[in-house]
Amino acid sequence: MNKSKDAAHRQKPPRGQAVLSNCPIQTFSYHSKAAKYFKVFGPAAVTFTGAPTGCTDICSDRGVSRLCQRKMDTLGPVPKPSETPIGGRDVRAVMTFYRDTSIERFLGDFDRQHLLSLLSLPFLNAWDLDPALRRLYNIVAESFTSDCEQVYNAATALRFAIMDCTPYVIIRSLYLYI
């Protein structure tokens, strides 16, 4: 009985075939409170059988396998099936991820180079910088600094209620977030 379970556990899905059924996609919505804005398409069971390599995009198999590897590195080595408490199955093999392809569909409606040109930001110290952008940089830097100063001086309870951060984070943000 155990032998058959071990054999079934070791059996890998056909290479490249189990991409959609076992593909755990973790989008950025997982990392933010904006998750409520994103539709998800139900949980998908993760199997640590390895995924075929592919390009490095957010929905690629390589990205998925790297996510799984990080989870495994955090949780430690997977025990043998006979040592696991739930019917020979490792509970960590059914961690829930969500597949969200809405970003791909949204971005697919537009020309990629067009989107990249919209995202491009000139080097802010360039001598031929657009004067409007230089003005924008000045007002954003000034207002951002003054806002951070006000938050820094605010009462602790207020600071944690609104900003949810320590003064150190605010000081660091002056260098990083602007």
Partner: peptide, 17 residues
């Protein structure tokens, strides 16, 4: 935020998550 997922260099379409 969705546009930030695009990779700006190289051949990959999306930046690593």
């Amino acid at each position: 935020a969705a546009m930030l997922c695009l990779e700006r260099k190289g051949t990959a379409i999306y930046a690593p998550i």
